[in-house]
Design a protein around this nucleic acid. Structure first.
Length: 644
RNA sequence: GCUGGCGUAGCUCAGCUGGUAGAGCAUCUGAUUUGUAAUCAGAGGGUCGGGGGUUCGAUCCCCUCCGCCAGCUCCA
């Protein structure tokens, strides 16, 4: 009988009989390892623990510490879901069931829609199957046999036709269930310890909206109940912070049915926050050598034809408005308008770079089901700027854009972020515009800029916009979610379409390079992200009401008014709660409005010229002289402190 | 746009199998003058998302439109 040499990650070797499996090696090392192992990596390939070696091999045993093992585990849970659905509803056809970031899903085709009650039944059935301790067995099938076997299952036969090799693998789960699948899987259902079905949704077959819509069941799965509970708690926390919920509770903004979906109304409290954001941004523009411009919300269709948007962006634009002289259209982007400002007169290389910035409101037609609070709207304001420069200036412009972006993130309390550089395909496909020299220049500038600033960046090939490469900044918020925010993009197309030029040192005409950049992305979306990031408890400088002054009785009303007046004189936003109510209620209301400071003014305070300070998070801070509190809050506002 | 769910007072929600609506909070009025997360009492407030249909009669059943929610697709 022949034997194979198995090399472990530490370099040690074991000799096993032919027919041995990774699980056998694990058991030989220690029963605990065998228990903890989820899947193996054999010769660099993920491999079932119960699949025999085929020769001398390297072996790595992946346990619940490994993210790839978690994917396998979730994939196996998806099979468990499919098996449960087939036991309960045998008429169901199976689509695909992959693992995802937070769990797994499985797509089903079934004439009758699943209901939430079905979900409970299915989950119970999954536990029932789990308890049977069924093995996930790998079975090999010839393609022609497979096509015959699955001929009544349209999605599986389509997949086998497209993807299967002449001999392909299937995985069983007990006597009744078998599924075309590359694997690998956990050895048995008993390995699966924690999962929960979460929701049902429609999803197109192969993500193509022209294909049939299936029913997708989403679930989550973790190695332990504890990890799963933490994940579910994070989901709850995200719901608690939802900007739509907080936006209503804190009276920040609304979407009005009479006006239409995707159109945001900022209320007085949201308005002051928005103004503070915008003022900060405009000042930053000026400090960093940008000019501020203002451009119209509508323009003749001719402009959009020249820019090309009328062609390739039309389905996202509001329909044309015929007027007496011409047809007009709402602007979906600011670029062409800034270009017109640049092109108003000839430029010398000495004038460059020209940095034209605007908080420009644009309107885009979004399909009806796609709007989401402030995150996805039909009318929004971009902090948009276009930099027109020479090739020599490109790199330093990109560097200063990124510095600006990082400053923006830090100011608003985001300490963690990542960068992503999207490049072209080298010109192979012809789908990208611009010369290879341009692409090389721009991509190098992006690479060198992140290097220079020491930013962690990943390069994603063939993901650029057709008009130029870009770099996106993604931030990590207070509960670990990733948001795409700032973007710095090259545009090789528009300068050409508008025949932009500058006169170089050589006295000849040259085409300037154009960098498009937005840091908030959209003011509305950024506002929404901030609400969720801070959970509505904005830092003092952004809080719509910074201090609530609350007299205990009418007797202290005059003193409270005096306190409010002095704070207002310092530029502090104050709410004087002169209602005929108990302090308890005033505090409760102020807490729920997340007002950073509450100043209780009773008889003692009035007499001594002090205030009793309560902080929304740290509760009672004791009594201090009003002058001291004024200094404290002035400081917090002036430094835009993120911690009160 | 698609699939599924939902739409009752400003907000959160009750309303049994069809018999023209109710609570708490909020609002207003009055009483109370109060020390760190809800003082008490009274009053006002709804063409039950819009339109159409079935019915003696519709918040409830059917159709249709609008909007919202979860996804899909798309995206700042």
């Amino acid at each position: 009988m022949s034997s194979f040499a198995i090399t472990l990650p530490d370099g040690s070797q074991k000799s096993v009989d032919a027919g041995a499996r990774p699980l056998d090696v694990a058991e030989a090392i220690s029963p605990r390892l065998a228990e903890a192992a989820i899947v193996a990596r054999v010769n660099g390939v993920l491999w079932d623990l119960t699949r025999p070696f085929t020769g001398d091999s390297t072996l790595e045993l992946l346990t619940n510490k490994n993210p790839e093992a978690l994917e396998v585990y979730r994939h196996s849970t998806a099979h468990l879901l499919a098996a449960a659905v087939l036991e309960l509803y045998p008429e169901t056809q199976l689509g695909i069931g992959p693992p995802i970031d937070t769990g797994f899903y499985y797509d089903f085709d079934r004439p009758v829609p699943f209901t939430p009650e079905d979900l409970e039944k299915i989950e119970a059935k999954m536990w029932e199957i789990q308890a049977r301790d069924l093995p996930y067995d790998r079975v090999l099938t010839r393609k022609d046999e497979g096509l015959e076997k699955y001929k009544d299952m349209w999605m599986k036969s389509e997949l086998i036709t497209e993807r299967a090799d002449e001999v392909f693998s299937e995985y069983t789960l007990g006597p009744a269930f078998i599924d075309f699948c590359r694997g690998p899987h956990v050895p048995s259902t008993k390995k699966i310890k924690a999962f929960k079905l979460l929701s049902i949704a429609g999803a197109y077959w192969k993500g193509d909206e022209k294909r049939k819509q299936l029913q997708r069941i989403y679930g989550t799965a973790f190695f332990t109940k504890k990890e799963q509970d933490e994940h579910l708690a994070r989901i709850e926390e995200a719901k608690r912070r939802d900007h739509r919920k907080l936006g209503a509770e804190l009276d920040l903004f609304s979407i009005q049915e009479l006006a239409g979906p995707g159109l945001a109304f900022f209320h007085p409290k949201g308005g002051i926050i928005r103004k503070t954001l915008e003022d900060w941004m405009r000042e930053a523009y000026l400090k960093r050598g940008y000019s501020l411009v203002y451009t119209p919300h509508v323009a003749r269709v001719d402009l959009w034809k020249t820019s090309g948007h009328f062609g390739f962006y039309r389905e996202n634009m509001f329909t044309v408005m015929p007027l007496d002289d011409a047809e007009y259209q709402l602007k979906p982007m600011n670029c062409p308008c800034h270009i017109l400002v640049y092109a108003r007169k000839p430029h010398s290389y000495r004038d460059l770079p020209q940095r034209l910035g605007e908080l420009g409101t644009v309107y885009r037609y979004e399909r009806s089901g796609t709007m989401h609070g402030l995150m996805r709207v039909r009318g929004f304001t971009q902090d948009d700027a276009h930099i027109f420069c020479t090739p020599e200036q490109v790199e330093s412009e990109v560097v200063s854009c990124l510095e600006f972006a990082i400053d923006t993130l830090r100011t608003f309390g985001f300490e963690k972020y990542k960068a992503e550089i999207s490049t072209w395909d080298g010109g192979a496909s012809g789908k990208y515009d611009g010369s290879p020299e341009h692409w090389q220049l721009a991509e190098n500038a992006l690479r060198r800029a992140v290097e220079k600033l020491g930013i962690e960046a990943t390069v994603v090939p063939d993901e650029a916009a057709f008009y130029g490469p870009k770099i996106d900044m993604k931030l990590v918020d207070a509960i670990g979610r990733l948001w795409q925010l700032s973007t710095v993009q090259f545009d090789f197309t528009l300068p050409r379409r508008f025949q932009l030029e500058y006169i170089g040192e050589d006295g000849k005409k040259h085409q300037p390079l154009m960098v498009h950049r937005a840091l908030f992305g959209s003011v509305e979306r950024f506002f929404g992200i901030l609400v969720e990031h801070y959970a509505g408890a904005f830092p003092v400088w952004l809080s719509p009401v910074q201090v609530a002054v609350m007299p205990i009785t009418d007797k202290q009303l005059d003193y409270a008014k005096q306190v409010a007046k002095e704070l207002e004189a310092d530029g502090v936003r104050v709410y004087l709660d002169d209602r005929n109510e108990k302090v308890n209620l005033k505090i409760r209301d102020a807490q729920m409005q997340k007002i950073p400071f509450m100043l209780v003014c009773g008889g003692r305070e009035a007499e001594q010229g002090t205030v009793s300070v309560r902080h929304r998070k740290h509760a009672d801070q004791g009594v201090k002289p009003l002058a001291e509190f004024r200094e404290q809050i002035k400081q917090l506002i002036a430094t835009r402190a993120n911690n009160d």
